[in-house]
Design a protein around this nucleic acid. Sequence first.
DNA 1: TTTAATTTTCAATAAGTTTTGAAAATTCAA
DNA 2: TTGAATTTTCAAAACTTATTGAAAATTAAA
Lengths: 166, 166
Amino acid sequence: MQYQEAKTKFIQTWGTLGSSWGINRAMSQIHALLLISPQPLSTEEIMEELSMSRGNANMNIRALLDWGVIHKEQKPGDRKEYFYSDKKIWELAKQVVRERKRRELEPAIKALEEVSQIKDSSDAGAKELKKVSEDLLDFTQKVDRMLEKAAGSDENWFYKQLLKMF
Amino acid sequence: MQYQEAKTKFIQTWGTLGSSWGINRAMSQIHALLLISPQPLSTEEIMEELSMSRGNANMNIRALLDWGVIHKEQKPGDRKEYFYSDKKIWELAKQVVRERKRRELEPAIKALEEVSQIKDSSDAGAKELKKVSEDLLDFTQKVDRMLEKAAGSDENWFYKQLLKMF
DNA sequence: TTTAATTTTCAATAAGTTTTGAAAATTCAA
DNA sequence: TTGAATTTTCAAAACTTATTGAAAATTAAA
């Protein structure tokens, strides 16, 4: 496979994977592009390379900065902003875990805590709701603690955990 | 919190969480409803309870059956199909992991394998693409093996892993 | 068979999301 | 200051996905 073909495939694969994880295509593609770029890129260059409008590029660059998975730098004597991505996959994974935990898991846990508070009752529906929501809360909290731990650890810790598993 | 309020909140929370994980709202809500229902429900009852059309209910019930997270049963002397969900959260989580692994992770690994095959070159872009895609492939394969292991284990294994982590 | 109950399909429509592009706002060197 | 470069905003348009509801297909009891 030649470079150009591989590059396109990489960006496309990342875009598709992103979509199925609720991250929009433009955002995943910009991230993919920065991930494999040897040097930081300007908005102009991103627009050009991915054939997307200025507005779209700008919006999604902001979102990626907000997620903390890309960063910006200034070049001396140049007013443009240049963007680059963390190349350490482990750091990237940790950041994604932190954000999704905060945005999705924590609100769900909060809601489950309220729901599982429902007072005991003889009604079968209420009983089942209480039981299921308690179980789910328990499981979700365990996953949350696991992710919390992972998001605070280094790559080596992850490899050690893997070894322990097998 | 009263039963009806808690029930609505549970279904809504599940629906929202589902959306941010690429599962559509109707599908998550049907699943939530079956999860907390003490007895199997018919399409009619699901439509009624969630105020959704027959077509929508039917389509998403099929999708949930396809995911293997709900099942159907017949009641003697009744032509309707009744649906119920696995109440074991661990079994549910395993099924979800298996499906997403198969549908999303495995195709991504396949693409990364191809991309990282790109031949060595002095071009900085090609070099970076090769390096990043190799790293990413390695990480993704590790995650894949971890999930493979988890999807084949029982709840107790999961708790033991958690203990080992802390 | 016939018939009524039930499930499935699917074209039309609604709802939601993403993208564009041009105008407005901001920034900073001269 | 001024003005050119750059970034941000946002209404409108394009695109995508979800939902409806009625008609067609299937099922099984009488």
